[in-house]
């Protein structure tokens, strides 16, 4: 399987580390409730078909990317940057 790192280009999956469901969102930092955190940490939709997930280009630029992938066919639909440099990269592309 190949993923396109928005910073480095098309790379083999073995350069990346899987970080799981991109829709598992941490509650706001002020929130200290068990309920909200348990949902964040333990509960997963685990859909078949399209799945949004975070990967880290660990053996490359170490940036995180959001991948949309069909988990039934392993077809990679899109790879988008996330994190502090994401905006800058998108701006850079637009110009």
């Amino acid at each position: 399987m190949l993923l396109t790192c928005p910073y480095c280009g098309l790379r083999d999956q073995s350069e990346f580390t899987y970080r799981g469901d991109a829709n598992a969102r941490r509650p706001s930092f002020a929130d200290e409730s068990i309920e909200a955190h348990a949902a964040y940490v333990f509960d997963r939709e685990n859909p078949s078909g399209l799945h949004e997930e975070i990967w880290n280009h660990t053996s490359g630029c170490r940036n995180h990317i959001k991948v949309v992938r069909n988990v039934t066919t392993h077809e990679v639909v899109s790879c988008e940057p996330v994190g502090p440099f994401a905006k800058a990269l998108k701006r850079g592309r637009a110009t």
């Binding site: 970080r19 991109a22 930092f29 170490r62 940036n63 995180h64 994190g83 502090p84």
Partner: peptide, 16 residues
């Protein structure tokens, strides 16, 4: 390192 980078990039991207 992975734990820190994940939180910096994905959870709290606004932290400099």
């Amino acid at each position: 390192m992975e734990h820190l980078e994940y939180h910096r990039d994905v959870v709290w991207p606004d932290l400099k």
